[in-house]
């Protein structure tokens, strides 16, 4: 099964507070009125942010992607019925930072996403850089 990632017709650059990584799964696949229901309630205190989703308290942190990396949002227009078919993803948005939200817990280096950003980048570089013969 091949996966194709293709550049969309128009790739929008997301604003700094455009991407919200939420600590839950929701059984929905549709647009959400983030600017109406979520953003007005985001508050900054010290280096963290607070907000609320369905009454649940959230604590967030703005995370920037490591140097040399760009975040992309992929959209799959047609989801194949079987797992042997080829899959096509299109890039719709790019971003350099995003908001990482925890349910009532201050984001720390124990959070997987923060470890990934911090550690994986170095490992990936070591793995993929050309081997230099001495």
């Amino acid at each position: 099964m091949a996966i194709h990632i293709q550049s969309g017709k128009e790739i929008k650059s997301s604003p700094d507070d455009g991407i919200q990584l939420m600590p839950f799964k929701i059984a929905a696949d549709c647009e959400a009125e983030v600017s109406t229901y979520f953003k007005p309630y985001i508050k900054v205190n010290d280096s963290n942010y607070t907000s609320s989703f369905r009454g649940y308290p959230l604590v967030g942190k703005k995370l920037s992607l490591p140097k040399g990396y760009t975040g992309v949002i992929l959209n799959e227009r047609v989801i194949p019925d079987t797992d042997t078919e080829e899959r096509n993803f299109y890039i719709t948005n790019r971003f350099e930072s995003f908001m990482h939200w925890n349910y009532d817990k201050i984001p720390t280096m124990n959070d997987a996403i923060m470890q990934v950003l911090d550690v994986w980048v170095d490992v990936a570089e070591a793995l993929h850089s050309p081997i230099q013969e001495t």
């Binding site: 929701i26 929905a28 549709c30 959400a32 009125e33 229901y37 979520f38 309630y41 609320s52 989703f53 369905r54 009454g55 649940y56």
Partner: peptide, 14 residues
């Protein structure tokens, strides 16, 4: 009732 966010925050979700 908003299908994603639930209610405006005048509501006590609990």
């Amino acid at each position: 009732c908003n299908p994603i966010f639930g209610f405006p925050q005048i509501v006590r979700f609990s």
